[in-house]
Design a protein around this nucleic acid. Structure first.
Lengths: 125, 125
DNA sequence: TTTCTTGCAAAATGTTTGCATTGGA
DNA sequence: TCCAATGCAAACATTTTGCAAGAAA
């Protein structure tokens, strides 16, 4: 546990919402002006691998398109990043949601994050 | 409607799952070897703007981190791309889901895609 | 010493832009 | 003719990598 790692961790955890790597870097730089962006990235990946934080978007890095028109839910494998469409849990779902006034909701989808069968088998090896 | 656009559209719609721009390009190139990647991107953006397809991930392009440990749902504005955490719709949600055998589900979150109040106000202008 | 981490710079990836050219309405 | 769309190449943004130097065990 280096001082850099410590500060990156504390800074990250103090940030509300869903910060980007660049945002963490900027914030850390205030305390540690000599920090490098590569170090921030390396540590963020460590934190993700260790499970103390997660990635909000499983597909940053590439544009992924959704061509299916009907509402449906998603199964996302956190290992291989593949996505499967599953039948929508249903319209009653929407009633349960705590959507605040002012937000114009248009689509709902449940994201189920986990590990697919293939990746589970590989993990065992 | 150019031949390129037509073929990009047809190819895209024939692709199962959640294709990337690169995948669409590769597929289109089989029919239209002279197609350029830029043309594919430009057309995909047109399709997205017109509403006939959607982006699966609102945050490709940047790593976004999730530091909150408790399960919660997300409000995502398709205009400004901001994300708000809302209280989780609840554990009963999980029972309703059509998760197939073999997939090891770990986390569930409802993504509510729409337009936030601020962006709605700007749209009106 | 040995190992792990840092910081820099270069490379890699994915996407966008500018612009000259082209092909239809 | 005219305008929008194409294809190329360069620019851009984000992330990753290789590596030499430094710090900790």
């Amino acid at each position: 546990m280096t001082p850099q790692r410590q500060i990156i961790y504390e800074t990250l955890m103090s940030m509300p919402g869903h910060p980007s790597a660049e945002a963490v870097y900027a914030q850390v730089k205030e305390q540690l002006p000599s920090i490098s962006l590569a170090t921030v990235y390396k540590n963020l990946h460590l934190f993700i691998e260790s499970g103390i934080i997660r990635e909000m978007s499983q597909h940053h890095g590439t544009l992924r398109l959704e061509t299916k028109a009907e509402p449906h839910d998603h199964l996302v494998c956190r290992t291989c990043r593949k996505v499967w469409d599953i039948e929508h849990a249903g319209a009653k779902l929407e009633e349960r949601l705590n959507v605040p006034d002012g937000f114009k909701a248009e689509r709902y989808a449940v994201e189920v994050l986990g590990v697919c069968q293939t990746c589970q088998e590989h993990e065992r090896l």
